[in-house]
């Protein structure tokens, strides 16, 4: 369990993280995701005690760190997995993993879990990137931390490795039963691995919620765009009915007190249906084959352009007129203009 309250971090006079608050329950994996420079790695370093904080509080079961009261990293009982692995080059794998352990049992256990038993007596520089990162994870888990911090653990690895390794890391964390904060810039990674996803922008947490909630009901347009392809269609909001009327007809939306009369409706490409129709309101601009699906760009009579993802069997020529419809039964989201 960790609780961060009103955390602010400065680099010189630059405020990198501003008034951040969140908490993490037992055994959860929190994915912190955001564009480059949003402060996600900085937050991790501050929690680890590697960076001083300007104000706020970081609270753990057994300690509380504030700007005045710094707790040394080694006193925090946290584990950290680094982007560049940070294995000790002069020690063998088993020596790395049991760095501060009295007996090697835990180390052997985690090496076995992560499939590294054959590399015990090898020096880190003889391992591949994926193996190094698994050793680093084994080292962290063997020391039985109360919370694991992962700082872009997959970003220096080949794409082919990433997919498999992310699931290996997730199941190891689940087996250890520790909460984890995992920083990434990859939205797909964030959505698929996390129990919760926190989307950061300029050092502020825009949304913190389970992955499906972040994806289906993003709190603003930034979150909507960051987590996947997004179309915005202009419409008029009828407060009393909770309905937005647009060129696509009437759509029921999640009620939001702050909405004004003119709004933009979020529609994901997979929530739209196309049909060849000479009298349709849309026209195909281009189509891209994606293997398992096909992505179309459709221009509406209003000039708005929409991305539409369809089955790969649908073939439509460029310039072809189409009818377009929203095919989802769930409520949509609308946002104020701008």
């Amino acid at each position: 369990m960790i609780e961060v309250t009103n955390l602010s971090i400065n680099y010189g006079d630059n405020t990198v993280v501003n008034n951040l608050s969140f908490s993490l329950a037992q055994k959860e994996i929190l994915m912190l995701v955001g564009p480059t420079g949003c402060g996600k790695s900085t937050i991790l370093k501050a929690i680890a005690g590697l960076l001083p904080i300007k104000s706020g509080e970081i609270k753990h079961q057994s300690w509380t760190a504030t700007a005045k009261k710094h707790i040394a990293p080694e006193k925090r009982k946290l584990g950290m997995v680094f982007q560049d692995f940070a294995l000790f080059p002069h020690l063998t794998v088993i020596e790395n993993v049991s760095f501060r352990l009295k007996s090697p049992e835990k180390a052997e256990h985690w090496l076995a879990v992560l499939g590294l038993s054959n590399f015990k007596h090898v020096k880190p520089n003889q391992l591949s990137g994926g193996q190094k990162q698994r050793v680093a994870l084994a080292r962290t888990l063997a020391h039985e931390p109360a919370l694991v911090l992962l700082d872009e653990p997959l970003s220096s690895l080949d794409a082919a490795l990433k997919d498999e390794l992310r699931w290996q890391i997730r199941s190891a964390l689940k087996e250890a039963g520790v909460p984890a904060i995992w920083v990434t810039h990859d939205q797909e990674e964030a959505l698929s691995i996390g129990d919760k996803v926190g989307v950061l922008l300029n050092g502020k947490l825009e949304q913190l919620a389970p992955p499906h909630e972040c994806y289906t009901t993003p709190v603003n347009k930034f979150v909507a765009r960051f987590l996947g392809d997004a179309n915005f269609i202009q419409g008029e909001y009828a407060k009393t009915e909770g309905v937005v009327t647009s060129i696509m007809g009437k759509s029921v939306i999640h009620i939001n007190e702050n909405l004004e009369d003119n709004v933009e409706l979020l529609v994901r490409p997979e929530d739209l249906n196309l049909q060849a129709n000479d009298k349709g309101i849309g026209k195909i601009i281009w189509s891209r084959y994606e293997g398992k699906s096909r992505l179309f760009l459709v221009e509406l009579a209003t000039g708005e352009q929409l991305k539409v993802r369809q089955s790969n069997t649908l073939q439509l020529e460029t310039g072809q007129n189409v009818s377009i419809a929203i095919n989802t039964a769930s409520k949509l989201n609308a946002y104020n203009l701008g």
């Binding site: 080694e74 950290m80 760095f99 501060r100």
Partner: peptide
């Protein structure tokens, strides 16, 4: 990060 790693593993 190597020294940081050692610190986080509990080393003074």
């Amino acid at each position: 990060s190597m020294v940081n790693a050692a610190r986080l593993l509990g080393a003074s």
